[in-house]
Design a protein around this nucleic acid. Structure first.
Lengths: 207, 207
DNA sequence: TACAACTTACCTAGTCAAAGATAGGTAAAA
DNA sequence: TTTTACCTATCTTTGACTAGGTAAGTTGTA
């Protein structure tokens, strides 16, 4: 029995293959999220991600055929979670959209890593032929149109001033959220993101 | 007389050395601006920049000792121009700050390359140990405090609502500008940046 | 003003390290 | 017996940067 065999025994607890596969992919995605957040797409290294997931680089590439594929998987997964949160917020009938958005921003202020992931990747994706560019275009498109719908409802319900275009307000709301994140990530201790966002909300709230 | 000599003659019109140096640095900075804008700092290649400036890569490195140095020079130069524009806007006594900012945004909408330079680089600089991070921290700090001052004045002058904190409004104004740029760069034809900004301005204008 | 000595601008050729990806094998699981 | 997960070893590309040379421009001195 070789040394390699022994090591192997240590590293591979008895499991079914599908369990192993799922567990590995899980760990890889988690590690990728972390490094993409910290270093951006170009800056992150497959070898580091693989190591953090307890694999070698080719081991990682067995599950995700390329760095680009890995990025897209991470984004899809993360976006599903975010999207769910946002849709829950927007679809609550008769609820207070503005308050819910405020809650979202407060929540974001507790997860700088995730916020940085999207802030860095969105900006990186502005360069031509970036693998994630189309992803973000779609994402803004879709989310914004949901938001605009919710705004229109809230205007009818008397929550939001009616003298503002819902379309433009949708654009503005995302702009404020994105823009605040940049300043907050640069100087977390100096920028009170939820407070600033709250002030903006007061400006659009119906009196 | 060698071929090399002739070529040399062609490529080097009779000039003083200081003229040549200045002209070369000028062309390099211009090309660097272009490629940093398009591809970001990491994405841009020294060889491409050099070629666009009519030099080889080591030729470029004769004038700027490293890629980092080149970036900082580009930022310093560009920032000087921008800063001047902003300070002119903010320092006009008794003028309309909001209208001036609106004019600035309208102007930005005509120079997507420059806007992209700062948008991409700011986000890229969020990753730890990025050479430009400190630059942007300083820049926000400085510009924001100038803006806050101008806002306070405008509030006294009755241009801006007085029930808003000048500090927070300063943060918000930059956030809106930055955030709008992202959506606009992703979908230029769908986002009317000056219009959206104008709507925001109406919200803070004194009635 | 002439010319030697120095300095500067820039080139060709090459180094070096990083990082993504592939080839082919081994052992566990199906 | 086949498939899957994953490894070691290797390849390849890329891109920042260096070494060392050449010719043009500059400067000091006769």
């Amino acid at each position: 029995m070789s040394i390699i065999y022994c090591v192997s025994e240590l590293k591979r607890p008895r499991r079914t293959q599908s369990e192993r596969t799922r567990a590995s992919r899980e760990k890889i995605l988690q590690a990728a999220l972390e490094f993409f957040s910290r270093d951006g797409f170009r800056g992150a290294k497959l070898s580091e991600i693989a190591q953090a997931a307890g694999l070698t680089e080719p081991g990682l590439l067995h599950h995700f055929p390329s760095k680009n594929h890995l990025l897209m998987q991470v984004l899809d997964e993360r976006d599903r979670v975010n999207q769910k949160r946002i849709n829950d917020i927007l679809s609550q009938e008769g609820s207070h959209v503005l308050d819910s958005l405020h809650a979202l921003v407060k929540h974001n202020a507790t997860v700088p890593g995730l916020v940085q992931l999207f802030t860095v990747l969105v900006a990186e994706s502005l360069v031509p032929e970036h693998p994630a560019r189309e992803f973000f275009v779609q994402r803004y498109q879709r989310t914004r149109s949901n938001l605009v719908e919710a705004i229109a409802k809230a205007q009818k319900a008397g929550e939001i001033r009616q003298d503002i275009s819902a379309e433009v307000l949708g654009v503005l709301l995302f702009a404020v959220m994105d823009g605040l994140q940049v300043q907050w990530l640069l100087q977390p201790e100096q920028i009170d993101m939820p407070a600033a966002f709250g002030l903006f909300l007061e400006l659009v709230r119906a009196k």
